[in-house]
Design a protein around this nucleic acid. Structure first.
Lengths: 332, 332
DNA sequence: GTGAAAGCGCTAACAG
DNA sequence: CTGTTAGCGCTTTCAC
C-alpha cells in the first residue's frame, strides 16, 4: 500500500490543526471559512480518512460480519444480498464467512471476526451454542437470521432473530394439499429445522389427518444426503401422494428422485418446496413453492444489528408466500 | 465492544515486556522458558491480537476485498465460494461488495475498500476503467476474475486476470452443434462479453458455416432484458435450429422463451448454455452446458492476489467443459 | 534475550 | 472556534 494522505497532510496544507480537520470531516463545529478551506484541501488531496485509525481510536469497527452456511446456496445468496444492500446504504463494509454449517467452521469465522474487531454480526447459526460464547463474552452484537439456536439457559437463546414465518408457510401448504384431497403427505426436511416439521404435524392434526411418522424424514443439506433421503422416502412409501420439502437442496433431490423412479409430477405425486429459486419456474412442471423472503430477512437482520438493539426475545417473523405453479394436482 | 485483553495485559501477567509478547506470538526469538510462559498466559487469558492495532502499525490490512456484480447469481456465488475457501485457508477475512455490475457501484465499493485500508482485491470488473484509477494510485494489488477490462493505454489493462477459457468452450459447443447438422445457429450473449461472440464467429468461419449477423444478439444480464432478447430472437428468426447462450440468466430466458413460443427442445431447437447451474439438470430436458470453472476461478484469483504477483500481462485461462445432457439433437 | 519507547492515523479531552 | 496532547493495540528499532 502506497503512503496514503493522512489527516496531518490535510491539516498542514490547510494551515490548521489536525483536530480541526477531524471535526470538519465528522460534522463538528467549525467556522464557515475554515470548513470550506479544509474541505477544499481534502478534496484536492483526494483524502480518505483511514478506517483503521478511527476504529482503533474508537475501539470498534464500523464493519458488519456475515456468517452463512454456504454462499453457493440460492437462499443464503439472497439473504446475503439483503445484508449487503442494507450495509451499503449505511456505508458499512461486510466481512463474509462461509461456515459450512458446522460448529467448527463457525467458531473459526467468529475468531477471525473477533480478531478484526468486528462487533456486529448477522449470522445463520449452525445450531451449536458453544461457538458463540467467545463472541458474546467480547460484547458482540449479534442477530440471527433464518434460524435460532435453542439456547437452553444460555445467553445464546436471547439473541434476537429474524425468521421466515415457517409455521404459517407450512400450514398454508399442508392445507392446500389436503384441500386437493391428499391424505398421505410426507415431509422431507433438513436436520435441525424442527420448527417446520412441528408445524407440519400440527396442521395435519388440526385438519384431522392421521400423522404417519414414517412419512416425516430428514436429510442433511448436501446433494448426496438429500437425494438419499428423498429416494428412500419414495421407495419405502410408494403410497404417498404428496410431499413437502425443506430448502431448495431437498426440493431438488425430490424432483430428481421422483424422475429417477418414474414418478409423474403431479399425477403420481404432488410436490411443494420450501424456498423459491430461479429453477422452480423452469422445472417441468413448474414447482409450487412456499417462498420465504430471504432477501428481506437479511435486510431486516442488518437493520437490527445496526441499531444495536437491546436484547429482545421475540423473534421477528416475516411472512412467506405460497406460489402455486404446476407441481400439485388432485389426489390420484 | 467490551474492553478486550490486550498485549499489555498478557505482558503484565507474564511478567515480561510487551515487545517480548509480540515476538513470541509472531515467532521471533525468545528463550524457551519465556516463550512457554507467555504462550500459557496468553491462552489462559484468551488473548487475541487485535488486527486493528497490527494493521495500523504495519500500514496494511491483511484482508481481501471481493467485488462481484451480483451475489445472487449462481456463477458469482460459486466464484465467491472459491475466494472464501482460499482466503480462509490463509486466515484472511474477506470484505465482499456487490457492484450491480455498473461503474458507479464499483467505484463506491472501491472507495469503501480504500477507506478500510484493504490493499488486495479480487474483482469481476464492470468494464469501466475509471473506477480503478484511485485503487491503482493507492497501490492496491488487484486481480480480475472472469472478465478483463480493455485498458486502452491504461494501467488497468495490465491487471492480472483469471478467466474461463471461453474461446475453447464456445468452439467445442459450436463444433458439437455443427456436427449434429445445425447450420443456422444463434448466439445470445451478454453485452460486454465480446470474447465469446468472437469465438462463436471464428469457429463458424473455420467450419465453413456462413455467419449470419442477425443471429448474434445481446441482452443485459437482467431477467427482463434477457427474456426480451431471447423472445425477440426466436420470433424474428423461426428458422434457427440451435442457440448458444451466454451466462445462466440468458440461458434461463432462452428456456422460458422457447417454452412460451411452444418450441420443443431439442426437437425444434437445440440449446446450449454457457454456465452450469443446479437447475440445468432439473430442466426438461436437462440442459447441455459449457461449464466454466467458477469456483476455481475465484480460488486461483485469490491465490494470485495473496502472492502479490508482479504485474503480469498473460491472463490465466482455466478450461471449461462441455457437459452433454439432453437439450441438443440432430437438425430437424 | 529482553525491555523501553516511538509511532501507525485518528478522535476526544482540554486548554487557550 | 481552534490547536495541543494523549492515547487506542500493536510492531519495531535500539539500547541494555
Amino acid at each position: 500500500m502506497r503512503a496514503r494522505t493522512t489527516i496531518k497532510d490535510v491539516a498542514e496544507a490547510a494551515g490548521v490543526g489536525v483536530a480541526t480537520v477531524s471535526r470538519v470531516l465528522s460534522g463538528g463545529s467549525a467556522s464557515q471559512q475554515t470548513r470550506e478551506r479544509v474541505l477544499a484541501v481534502a478534496a484536492q488531496l483526494d483524502y480518505r480518512p483511514s478506517a483503521l485509525g478511527r476504529n482503533l481510536r474508537q475501539r470498534r469497527t464500523g464493519g458488519i460480519g456475515l456468517l452463512i452456511p454456504d454462499i453457493t446456496d440460492s437462499f443464503y445468496g439472497r439473504l446475503a444480498d439483503g445484508v449487503l444492500a442494507c450495509a451499503r446504504a449505511a456505508g458499512e463494509p461486510v466481512i463474509v464467512g462461509a461456515t459450512g454449517d458446522d460448529a467448527e467452521g463457525e467458531a473459526e469465522m467468529i475468531g477471525i471476526l473477533l480478531e478484526q474487531g468486528v462487533d456486529r454480526v448477522v449470522a445463520v447459526p449452525s445450531g451449536d451454542t458453544e461457538p458463540w460464547a467467545p463472541a458474546l463474552r467480547a460484547g458482540m452484537t449479534v442477530v440471527f437470521a433464518d434460524r435460532r439456536v435453542n439456547g437452553r439457559d444460555d445467553m445464546v437463546g436471547a439473541i434476537p432473530a429474524v425468521l421466515a414465518d415457517e409455521r404459517s408457510g407450512v400450514r398454508t401448504a399442508v392445507e392446500y394439499l389436503v384441500g386437493l384431497g391428499h391424505r398421505r403427505i410426507a415431509y422431507l426436511g433438513g436436520v435441525g429445522q424442527s420448527g417446520r416439521a412441528a408445524a407440519f404435524r400440527d396442521t395435519l392434526a388440526a385438519l384431522g389427518v392421521k400423522i404417519d411418522e414414517e412419512l416425516i424424514v430428514f436429510g442433511r443439506a448436501t446433494r448426496d444426503s438429500a437425494y438419499a433421503a428423498a429416494s428412500g422416502l419414495f421407495q419405502h412409501r410408494p403410497d404417498l401422494t404428496g410431499v413437502i420439502t425443506g430448502g431448495n437442496m431437498l426440493g431438488e433431490a425430490a424432483v430428481l428422485a421422483a424422475r429417477e423412479l418414474d414418478l409423474r409430477v403431479p399425477r403420481d405425486v404432488s410436490l411443494i418446496m420450501f424456498d423459491d429459486v430461479p429453477w422452480a419456474e423452469l422445472c417441468a412442471p413448474p414447482l409450487t413453492v412456499i417462498a420465504p423472503p430471504a432477501r428481506d430477512i437479511g435486510y431486516r437482520a442488518t437493520e437490527l444489528v445496526l441499531r444495536t438493539p437491546g436484547r429482545r426475545t421475540r423473534p421477528v417473523r416475516l411472512p412467506t408466500e405460497l406460489i402455486i405453479r404446476g407441481s400439485c394436482g388432485p389426489r390420484r
